[in-house]
Design a protein around this nucleic acid. Sequence first.
DNA 1: AAAAATCTACCTACTAGATGGTAGCCATAA
DNA 2: TTATGGCTACCATCTAGTAGGTAGATTTTT
Lengths: 191, 191
Amino acid sequence: MRDTRAELLARAEILVRGRGYSGFSYGDLAEAVSIRKASIHHHFRTKTDLALALVAAYDARYDAALAAILATKGDAASRIEAYGQLYLTGVEDGLGCLCAVLAIEMDTLPDVLRADIARFFDKHIAWLERVLAGGCADGSLRPGLDPAATARLVVATLEGALLLERLLAGSAGFRSTLMVLCDSLRPPRIG
Amino acid sequence: MRDTRAELLARAEILVRGRGYSGFSYGDLAEAVSIRKASIHHHFRTKTDLALALVAAYDARYDAALAAILATKGDAASRIEAYGQLYLTGVEDGLGCLCAVLAIEMDTLPDVLRADIARFFDKHIAWLERVLAGGCADGSLRPGLDPAATARLVVATLEGALLLERLLAGSAGFRSTLMVLCDSLRPPRIG
DNA sequence: AAAAATCTACCTACTAGATGGTAGCCATAA
DNA sequence: TTATGGCTACCATCTAGTAGGTAGATTTTT
């Protein structure tokens, strides 16, 4: 037996990340999953409920990925690079970041949803801040660097690069930006 | 007598930048400008026509701003910073970049529109590339820096910071990111 | 173990309102 | 007199969401 709820979440995420939140409808989703529009309401009472579930699932996946990076990568420099790689699949699949897509439509978003998205980004910034501070201490990153400000810069650059390179140059463009970003964090080479 | 067309463009831009392209309707716009929905079609036959005009106007304003920067700022470092400042009003007014907003909904956008948006970003990247190359030559920027890759990085960072800080920390957050970005482009300080 | 009650996951059919867009009319200004 | 820029009144389609029903599985009661 199939897990309709999971299928709905998976397909809805793809639709939202490709067309925006108001650009996607229960009608589209119903067709994609081959059930009737009304049946979606059985799993997600309102569109907002669905969006909240979407963000929760997305957030959980990132939580797992961030933990995995800490477990497998030893130094800060490679942790940041691994973090950047997380965005790469989005570029390759032509899908924007779910939370960026939602953030764009801020003015029309229900407050709960907006709060969840803000929390998503805050979490990433806090994680990066810790990693960056560690890198300053162990010498794998430029010593003078401001962890708090640089964390924001990293998220901004990657979100922007995903948005931009999905439209323009694809994964090659994204990879190039990620390289330049990582270089700018390393200690200056002498000579 | 009032210039309805200009009013329509101005209000539509605000609406789109705040709520996304599919999140905005002729109905909203009609109410904002206090004319009937059908009358908008007299000025912009279809929603796509309106979007194209919106992008054209936005693009023209940036053209003027970029030219003004070249005319008033002498060195590359301050040109880049001035370019970054252009995004600041967006953060302050709580409005995303028009072309970023449209790019988010890529999958549903008419081809002409998508092409115009791509051209908008390509133009910025090309402008930055020239400025960055100049800065390497005149010594106001880090000598080793790759102008082409760094131009993409700059646009990505600013677009991302606008998206992020509109949601999170407002203009303070944006300013901090802009500072860190500019610092990373300058020649490394010795000592 | 059989029968009864409840729950799950879907369905058809519907609603009220919004959506982009059209047709055709009317006042005003060049 | 003719374009301009509005208007009312539509239209078909799509929107999220509701009402109510059904077949089948599960659980509870007898």
